[in-house]
């Protein structure tokens, strides 16, 4: 994608537009076909893989060499497991896999640093676990709303992670975060009133799992992450647990209003994280 652009900014915008349009077309097509949640659950992980391809200009060979290539297969394998576990209909197994995935991902990505950096790998696994817990457990009970909430939460978290990735010397992860976020915006826009939109195991294991693996790569392999900014950003995965009481208090009943309020509250820690980055690094962004 960068080959078609005249500047890094153009490449980024072109990539975001492409990822967004592709996701919009796919989501619109599925909606027009009245595809069920099994199919719409594939939109987010597929968008992640498309974003990966747009950023890295490749489909890595298997077995993957290096952490960046492993990210792709974390997403692919996560998606496959997600589809399978949804097919079995066993909720307990799905929950177990969703929580095990970031641990396995941290070990897989951080293999080169084991056993010396065991505490760091463990911290990366724990962080991923918290992210998955926030995404899967704190997004409300309403079936027709929780998928949209999860997608919005993941999208906002990606936007918040982008500057951290850039500061962490990974312009590719920066682009990946923003391209994926653009695709999720398109998916949400196409499905905002779709009761059959699903953000289930495939989206969690493939889409969110892929993005967690990307963050773990920046943290464990490139090793230049601003931990304070990341800690502040991680609060975004806690806010869903406090959203419903707030929404009840303000008596928000309309779905769009509730989702907008959810997004607004999630933006608070992301804004704080970006402000932290700007306060700490000012104009020294390595663009």
């Amino acid at each position: 994608m960068s080959g078609l652009a005249q500047s890094p900014q153009e490449a980024l915008i072109l990539g975001m537009v492409t990822a967004g349009l592709l996701a919009l077309v796919a989501a619109g097509l599925l909606r027009s076909l009245r595809a069920g949640r099994v199919w719409t659950d594939l939109l987010v992980p597929t968008s992640f893989l498309v974003a990966y391809w747009l950023v890295y200009n490749k489909v890595p060979s298997f077995p993957p060499v290096g952490a960046v290539n492993k990210i792709f297969f974390v997403a692919v394998i996560g998606t496959a497991f997600g589809v399978l576990v949804e097919a079995t209909g066993r909720g307990g197994l799905a929950r177990a896999l969703v929580l095990a995935q970031p641990i396995a991902s941290a070990v897989y990505i951080g293999t080169a640093r084991l056993p010396d950096a065991l505490p760091e790998v463990a911290a990366a696994a724990l962080w991923g676990l918290l992210v998955m817990h926030g995404l899967s457990g704190g997004t409300g009970k309403a079936e027709d709303e929780s998928g949209t909430r999860r997608a919005i939460l993941l999208c906002i978290a990606c936007v918040g992670f982008a500057p951290i990735a850039l500061l962490g010397a990974s312009s590719s992860s920066f682009q990946l975060s923003l391209l994926f976020a653009a695709a999720i915006v398109a998916i949400v826009a196409a499905n905002i009133s779709n009761p059959d939109f699903g953000f289930r195991s495939a989206s969690l294991l493939g889409g969110a799992g892929g993005m967690i693996a990307a963050a773990q790569t920046v943290t464990l392999i490139t090793r230049k992450t601003d931990m304070l900014a990341l800690a502040v950003l991680t609060l975004v995965f806690v806010t869903p647990f406090v959203v419903d009481p707030v929404l009840r208090r303000v008596r928000a009943t309309h779905k769009v209003v509730r989702i907008a309020a959810f997004a607004g509250i999630c933006l608070l820690p992301v804004g704080a994280s970006v402000a932290t980055v700007i306060a700490r690094y000012g104009s020294s962004f390595p663009v």
Binding site: G66, A67, V68, A112, R113, G168, A169, S170, S171, S172, S173, T217, V218, L220, I221, T222, R223, K224, P286
Partner: peptide
């Protein structure tokens, strides 16, 4: 020094793994 540090990362030479 900024660029030297950046090229050690996973997007480039990936010095941690290689």
């Amino acid at each position: 020094s900024q660029r030297d540090s950046d090229i050690q990362g996973a997007d480039w030479f990936n010095a941690t793994e290689f």
